[in-house]
């Protein structure tokens, strides 16, 4: 019951956030350089004032701002994000086309970073100064300091240019079959470097977080109780320490999901991964603001979905939800 209520509360909050983002989006659209009507007219090859005024009326650009905002919110609710100025395709279509690639990339990177990060952190906490501890310390320092796009380039240099092991570009070999195991393997080979690039930084973050969290939990009273019960070490670590230590990591990871999507813009650009990040880069190059803000809106919504999923996972693990928040 408390769990349901908690989730419901998060959903209500999510609706407000999305509404807020739509408003921000609207403001940014109005701040964007150039008169949208003039741009549209320019694309149609016309420049006369009368035609521009007509366009303005047609798209409601002459009405008061709050009315415009109101219509904009309803447009967005119907997934109408307007047209891409350059590609003359609805923005929503473009985004949905590219969604799966981005979901695949960020999803794999997220699971990889969380899984390996927690594992490494747990290992490191077993013995301070041991190999795992030193390894994650060095790894974290390096990962914190490496620009993610540069890491991608250096991996390309090493594994594609010099060693020739992995493809540097795209999501699948051009002209390869569509479907079947061979195709999946091909995509996996293409996915390896981008996912690693995107996930490495967060893996280091989660590893350090897990380690710190484990060390903290190890000092808590209930672990003393478990020792006094005469439980074996592995049982104490698994049933008592790890479960409690992982909770803050999960909630932090959900919180960080937004940054993962942001990082995807850079990684997709480097690896030519055909997702919405790459779409954003193209929009930037072409100063296609409608498309750019559509991508912005969508990444923000993705983050909220990510957050809600982690919230639900959290409630499944932690019985105290009602008291906790």
């Amino acid at each position: 019951m408390a769990t349901l209520e908690f989730v419901a509360r998060r959903l209500v909050w999510a609706v407000f956030v999305i509404l807020g983002i739509i408003i921000v989006n609207f403001i940014l659209l109005r701040l964007a350089p150039g008169d949208p009507a003039a741009i549209m007219a320019g694309q149609a090859g016309a420049t006369d004032e009368q035609y521009i005024a007509q366009l303005r009326a047609q798209f409601g650009l002459d009405r008061p701002l709050h009315v415009q905002l109101y219509t904009y919110i309803f447009d967005v609710a119907r997934l109408d994000l307007g047209f891409s100025a350059r590609q003359q395709v609805p923005v929503a279509d473009l985004i949905f086309q590219r969604m799966p690639a981005t979901l695949l990339l960020t999803g794999v990177a997220f699971l990889f970073s969380l899984g390996v990060g927690i594992l490494l952190g747990a290992l490191a906490s077993r013995r301070a100064g041991g190999w795992a501890d030193s390894f994650i310390t060095v790894l974290a320092l390096a990962a914190y300091a490496t620009p993610i796009y540069w890491l991608g380039l250096m991996l390309i240099l090493l594994f594609s240019v010099w060693l020739g092991w992995l493809p540097a570009y795209g999501m699948a070999t051009i002209g390869g079959g569509a479907g079947g195991l061979a195709y999946s393997l091909d995509v996996a080979r293409h996915l390896l470097m981008p996912a690693l690039t995107l996930g490495l930084f967060y893996m280091a973050v989660y590893a350090r977080l897990t380690r710190a969290s484990m060390l903290e939990v190890q000092d808590q009273d209930f672990v003393k109780t478990a020792k006094a019960k005469g439980l074996p070490d592995w049982r104490i670590t698994r049933a008592h320490v790890l479960r409690n230590a992982v909770l803050p990591v999960i909630s932090y990871a959900g919180f960080q999901a937004g940054h993962l999507v942001g990082g995807a813009v850079l990684v997709e650009t480097v690896f030519g991964w055909p997702g919405i990040g790459r779409l954003a880069f193209d929009a930037l190059l072409q100063r296609d603001y409608n498309l750019l803000l559509g991508v912005f809106l969508f990444t923000a919504i993705m983050v909220i979905v990510f957050n809600i999923i982690t919230d639900i996972v959290y409630t499944l693990v932690d019985p105290r939800i009602e008291v906790g928040r």
Partner: peptide, 25 residues
């Protein structure tokens, strides 16, 4: 051997009941 004795032959209770139990179990 100590592990066998702990809990089975000698057991212990602590000062802080609020923190002495695992909150997730």
């Amino acid at each position: 051997r100590l592990r066998r004795i702990r809990g089975e032959r000698i057991s212990m209770i602590f000062q802080e009941p609020m923190t002495a139990l695992n909150p997730l179990m």
